[in-house]
Design a protein around this nucleic acid. Sequence first.
DNA 1: ATTAGCACTCTCGTGCCTTGATTGCCAATC
DNA 2: GATTGGCAATCAAGGCACGAGAGTGCTAAT
Lengths: 366, 366
Amino acid sequence: MSAKHAKQQRPAPETARAKEPELDRRKTSILGTVVYEYIATGEPVGSATLTQKYNLGISPATVRSELASLDEEGYLEQPHTSAGRVPSDRGYRYYVDRLMLPETLTPEERERIRGEVRRATHQLDAVVDHASHVLSNLTRSIAFAITPRLGSQVFRHIELIHVGAHATHLVLVTNLGLAAQVTVETAHEANAEHLLRATHNLNARLEGKALSEITLDKLRAIARETPLPEELVTAVADLLAEHTGVEGERRLFAGGAHNLLDQQEFRDLRKLRAILDLLEEQQTLYALLHGSLNSAGPTVAIGHELPNADMSECSVVTVPYKVANKNAGAVGILGPRRMQYARLIALLDCMAESLNALFVGEPELE
Amino acid sequence: MSAKHAKQQRPAPETARAKEPELDRRKTSILGTVVYEYIATGEPVGSATLTQKYNLGISPATVRSELASLDEEGYLEQPHTSAGRVPSDRGYRYYVDRLMLPETLTPEERERIRGEVRRATHQLDAVVDHASHVLSNLTRSIAFAITPRLGSQVFRHIELIHVGAHATHLVLVTNLGLAAQVTVETAHEANAEHLLRATHNLNARLEGKALSEITLDKLRAIARETPLPEELVTAVADLLAEHTGVEGERRLFAGGAHNLLDQQEFRDLRKLRAILDLLEEQQTLYALLHGSLNSAGPTVAIGHELPNADMSECSVVTVPYKVANKNAGAVGILGPRRMQYARLIALLDCMAESLNALFVGEPELE
DNA sequence: ATTAGCACTCTCGTGCCTTGATTGCCAATC
DNA sequence: GATTGGCAATCAAGGCACGAGAGTGCTAAT
C-alpha cells in the first residue's frame, strides 16, 4: 500500500515532476533552505532566522510573504500561529525529489562499511543482521533488513555428521556460502557408515539444484537407495523447507531502537511506543522492504506516504540489494521525517553495493 | 562488586538473618503488606489504604505510628511529606529474604517454558538467545543470559566441506550438540581429496578432547600429516579460539527493552536511556550473571546493591544454569525495584531447569 | 515588487492559589 | 500503657493569570 505513494528517487522521478508544479526560483530556494535548516536544528524556521543565517538578499518581510505562499500551497506548515515554519510531507517530498544534493561518502566511510560486511561470517542470517546493526550505529536510527528468499539458492553440499548413537547433525551449504544446520535426535541408532554413504549419495544427486526444487518426494527417492532413517529424511526436508517454505522464506532483522531516544520528536512516550510495537510486529517493516524489491534504487517514503498512521511522523528509506545480480533482499532505515535524506541514501547505497559484492553468486567466480 | 551485597535467596540466607534484626509480628505484617500493595499498584501506600483494603484489625492511627517507626528504621521511605510510604532497598530486602512466599508456576507455564527451550535448534547461541526472548516476553521485563564458557565442551566432530575451489566450509560439533561454522576462502586451491583425509585425521585425533586443550600447535602437528593449507589450520584454530579464548568466551544476549516503557518508573527519558545504554554496553549485565555462577540458587540484587548507580531504581534476579551438572551459564531479569520477585524467581528457576535438561551433557545418555 | 513598522496571536515559563491526600501529634479512651 | 479519634500542618498537583518572547500578517510607504 505504501509503494503506491512512495516514489523512487534515483531514476529521474518523472511521475513526481508531472505531479508537482515547479516552484519559481525564489520559492525553491526558500523551501530548500527551510528544509535544510529544520533538518539541522529541529526548530521551526522563521523569517528572521532565514535572512540572518542565509544570504538570501531579501528582507524578512518578503520572506514572510513567500513563506505564507508556500504554506498555502502545502509545502510548509505552522505548528502554531506564532511559530516558524516546518516542512510538510509535500515539502519534504519536493526537497527529496528535486532539491536535495546527492551526498557522497568519504572513502573511509565506504571502506568501513565494506569491511564490516566482509568480515562477517558466512552465515546468511548473521550477515544481514550485522548489516542492519552497522547501519543503525552509523545513522543513529533504526535500521532493518530482510534476507533473500532462499529457494533460489543453489544446493552445494549437505553433510550428515554422526555425533552420537542417537544424534545426527545436518549441515547444508549453498552457493552463497550460507549454511544452515540442525541436530536431529533419532530413535533408531544411526549407522556411521550409512550416514557417510547417504551423504555421498545426496550430494551427488542434488548438486546444482535450486533449493526450491528439492521436494520431500525427491529426497525419499534418494533415501531409498541407502538405508537412511525416515527421521533424517524429514529432517533434511524440514531444513530445506525452513529456507524455502512460505513461513521461513525470509527473515527480518531490525535494530537500533534506542537511537530514537535522542530524537526530540520521540520525547512523547506514546509515539515511541507505537514505533517500538511496529518493530516487534515486523509485518509493516517487512512490507516496506518487500515493496522496494521492485525498484532499482533507493525508495523514500515520507510521513503519511507510509502505510501506517503511527508512522506519520517518520520517514523510511529503503534500498534493495542483489544476489547473483537480481534484487533479492533489501535494507532500510526508519527515522524521524527530519532525517538527513541524502546521507542516508548514500549510506544505504553503499551497504547495498557491499552486499551485492558479497552475494555475487558463485564464490569460485570471485 | 554487587555480589558482595546481593544475598542468595534460596538456601536459607543466614547472613541476612544475622544482619537484620527480626521485626515484631505487627511490623512484619505491615511491612509485608506495604511491599505487596506497592508492587501491585505502584502508588505510595498510606495508612487509610492499608486499613481499608487489608484486614489488619487496627486503626489508621496505629498503622501510622508503625509506619513512622518502620520509616525511622529504614525499611520504608516517603517520596514527600504528604505521601504514603514506599519500600526502601532495605524494605525490599527484608521482604525478599523473609516475607515473600515462594510462588509456583502453573503446569501450563512450566510446560510452555520447557517447550520453548526444547524446540530451539541445537545451536548454543540460538538456544540462549531464545531463552532470553522467552523470559522477556513472559515477564514483560528485560531478560538477559550468558552462554556457557565453551572451552569445557568436548570435541565431537569437525568437518571440512569443499564448497568451491577456493572456499571451504568448517563445521565444528561438540558434545552439547552445539555447532559453530565458518566459511574460509583460501588463496590456494583446496583439494577435495585432501580435505576428506584431513577431516578424518582431525576427527580421529581430537575426539573426546576438551576444546580448551586443542591448541594451534597441536593442530599444526596434525596438519603436517596431511597436506592441509595453512589458512585452513589457522581457521580451525580461530574457530576454536572464538569459543575458548578470553574474548569470545561467552556471549551475552539481552532483550525486551521495550517492556520498560510500560513501567511508570521509567517515564523519565533519562532513566530509560541510562538503562538502554547499560544494555548496549553489556559489561555490567555480564558481570552480574558471571557473579551468579558461584551460587546454587537465585540471586536477588536490589537498588543500590547493584554495581551501577544508574540501576539504583532497578532490581535484578539471576539464576545459574548447568551444563553437565556444573554451573556454566546464567539467566537474569532486570526490572524496576517494584517487581514481582517471587514470580520472577519461579520463572527463572524453571528456565534454568529446562536449560539444565537440555545441556545434560552427553546427548547419547538421554 | 519590496520593505519597514506595528498590532496581533500564541507558546512557554513563572508564580500563585486551591484542592486533596496524608501525616504527626495530642488528648481521650479502653 | 497501648490504642484511637480528632485536628492542624505539610506538600504535590492541577488550574489560572500574567508577562516575555517569537513570529506572523497586514498596511502604508518606497
